[in-house]
């Protein structure tokens, strides 16, 4: 198809403008975290002081968010992968119903979900005060993402027939799960893990309701810094968040990409 240079130039312009519209705020925010005085602009000079201050003030929230994300990931793996397997084996009305119910927490506002958890379990003091309380909320919210991405892959590789093949060769249900189902679900597990970790690290709605002053997470700390600190500190905090999440995303993507390349070889 011949494409007129004018049309191409217009398409390029629109794309670049849209990209700029999305990227500029991120860059502004990062820059704000590195400027001595945001209201005077870059002329006031660049500094890492704010980043250092964020670290001093909020390092525990950052570590807590990482621990929470990994814990959420562990729980969603242990629950989500076998559940996806069970649902993929017996497709039907029941399994669709289960899938819908598991997905509900995504549709319900995080605040409502948190309120329900507090009403039901808030009375158990140790539980309410611990990070586990937030973990439960995060698992509820992220589980459908793990479940659905694993289920999609299991359906695509026709895991039922693969399992029947393994069973015909004498493999017990446990051997089938470990040796056939999990390895072939790997792309789905990786994609699900990516979703779970990023959603958990960035989750604010639920966490804001569930946290106590001693169980602040990174996004809750961010809100706190916006409300009570200099704009530069909040911006530097955003920068820290970027520095944490971007390498993580790249690493998980690369793991998935390597696997895909190997399969295609």
């Amino acid at each position: 198809m011949q494409r007129s240079p004018l049309v191409f130039a217009l398409q390029l312009l629109v794309t670049l403008l849209a990209a700029a519209f999305l990227v500029v705020p991120a860059l502004t925010s990062i820059l704000a975290g590195l400027t001595v005085n945001y209201f005077q602009g870059v002329r006031s000079g660049l500094t890492l002081d704010w980043v250092a201050q964020v670290w001093g003030l909020y390092a525990p929230t950052i570590l807590r968010s990482i621990v929470l994300a990994l814990g959420t990931l562990a729980v969603t793996l242990v629950i989500g992968v076998p559940a996806a397997w069970a649902l993929a084996r017996k497709p039907g009305r029941m399994s669709r119903l289960v899938e819908e119910v598991v997905t509900l927490p995504v549709a319900i506002p995080g605040l409502a979900l948190a309120l329900a958890l507090i009403l039901a379990y808030g009375g158990i003091r140790e539980f309410r005060a611990s990070i586990l309380f937030i973990l439960v909320g995060h698992v509820l919210y992220t589980l459908p993402f793990m479940l659905r991405s694993v289920m999609a892959v299991l359906a695509a590789v026709d895991v039922r027939t693969l399992e029947e093949g393994a069973a015909s060769l004498g493999a017990s249900p446990w051997q089938r799960f470990i040796q056939v189902v999990v390895p072939n679900a790997r792309p789905g597990i990786l994609a699900g893990a990516l979703m779970v970790v990023t959603l958990s690290i960035g989750e604010f709605n639920l966490t804001w309701m569930l946290h106590t002053p001693l169980t602040q997470t990174l996004p809750v700390g961010l809100a706190d810094s916006y409300a009570s600190m200099r704009l530069e500190i909040a911006s530097a905090y955003t920068l820290v968040f970027f520095i944490m999440i971007v390498p993580l995303l790249i690493a998980i993507q690369m793991m998935g990409g390597e696997r895909a390349a190997k399969t295609r070889k």
Partner: peptide, 26 residues
């Protein structure tokens, strides 16, 4: 029993020889 499926049901995560040896492995 030995079973050959219409779609073959070969395990994509294993090589040919690993597939054939799977029954002995379990």
């Amino acid at each position: 029993v030995g079973m050959v499926f219409q779609s073959y049901a070969l395990f994509p995560n294993m090589s040919v020889v690993e597939n054939v040896a799977y029954g002995l492995r379990v």
